[in-house]
Amino acid sequence: MLSVYLSGEIHTDWRDEIAQGADGMGIVFNAPVTDHGASDDCGVNILGAEDDKYWHDHKGAMVNAIRTRKGIEEADVVVVRFGDKYKQWNAAFDAGYAAALGKSLIILQPAEHDHALKEVNAAALAVARTPDQVVAILRYVVEGTLPG
């Protein structure tokens, strides 16, 4: 059973596309909490309110980091998606953490991010443009077969 952690952008359905494409391959997927509101507010919801937005966000980041670290550490492969809409500093951090742990790293990004992510991409074993390409990589890893 291959364990894959799907990190990064949370505003599109790329995770579902990969999971559906990999159905039947014996892959277990894990991911951060993708409900933006829950992710932002988990710290204050669990640990108590904060008047200062910095501490509000800090509490949430710390609680989310517990899940993220566990997911990356337990994964065989880490896929990090950089989307079009937002600067995803957390995704870059996840990619660096995965690389530091020696995880097999796949970056999923549009071509216009190539220059900005050149150091991140240099640490990856593959840079994909579409969820279908990620599925094809996973199929090759698990089954040794090529698309088509």
Rank of each mutant, 00 (worst) to 15 (best):
H56M: 07
H56G: 13
A111D: 11
N64L: 06
V79G: 07
S3G: 12
W55Q: 10
G43A: 10
D16I: 14
S104T: 14
E9T: 03
V120L: 07
S3I: 12
D114V: 00
V135I: 11
A49I: 09
G43T: 06
E119I: 10
W14P: 01
G48F: 00
D23T: 13
A22M: 03
S3Q: 12
A123F: 02
V44F: 07
I107P: 06
D35A: 09
L101E: 01
A98R: 01
H115M: 10
W55T: 12
C42N: 06
D132K: 15
Q88G: 14
V120G: 08
V77A: 01
V80W: 00
A38M: 07
A98K: 01
H36Q: 11
D52F: 08
Y5K: 01
G144P: 00
L117N: 02
R69H: 15
H115I: 10
A123V: 05
N45R: 14
E17I: 10
I137P: 02
D41P: 05
K87C: 09
S104Q: 12
L146Q: 07
D51L: 15
D132N: 14
I106V: 01
E74D: 08
I18F: 03
K87P: 10
M25H: 10
V135H: 13
G148S: 09
I18T: 03
A22E: 04
V135L: 08
D40A: 13
D76A: 01
S104C: 07
I66K: 10
A136K: 05
D23N: 10
R139Q: 03
D23K: 14
V142G: 04
L47G: 08
V28G: 11
R81Q: 15
W89H: 14
A91P: 01
T68F: 08
M62T: 13
E50A: 15
K70Y: 07
D40Y: 09
V77Q: 04
S104I: 06
N45A: 14
A116S: 14
T68L: 11
D132T: 15
N45K: 13
V80L: 02
N30T: 15
R139S: 04
E73H: 06
H36N: 10
C42F: 00
Y86A: 12
S104N: 11
G48N: 05
G148M: 06
S39R: 14
Y5A: 00
S39Y: 15
E50H: 09
F93T: 14
V134D: 02
Q88K: 09
G37N: 13
A99S: 05
L125V: 05
R139G: 02
G83A: 07
G148F: 07
I107T: 13
Q20M: 13
A75G: 04
Q109R: 09
M1P: 08
V135T: 15
V142R: 05
Y86G: 11
G24E: 03
G96M: 00
P131F: 04
V28P: 05
L2R: 03
I18V: 04
D23P: 07
A98C: 02
F82E: 02
H56L: 05
A91V: 00
L117F: 06
S39A: 15
N64I: 08
G37K: 12
V134C: 00
V63N: 08
D23I: 11
I137R: 09
H56Q: 13
I137C: 05
R69F: 12
G60H: 07
V80H: 01
N64P: 11
D40V: 14
K85A: 07
F93I: 13
A122E: 02
G83W: 01
F29V: 02
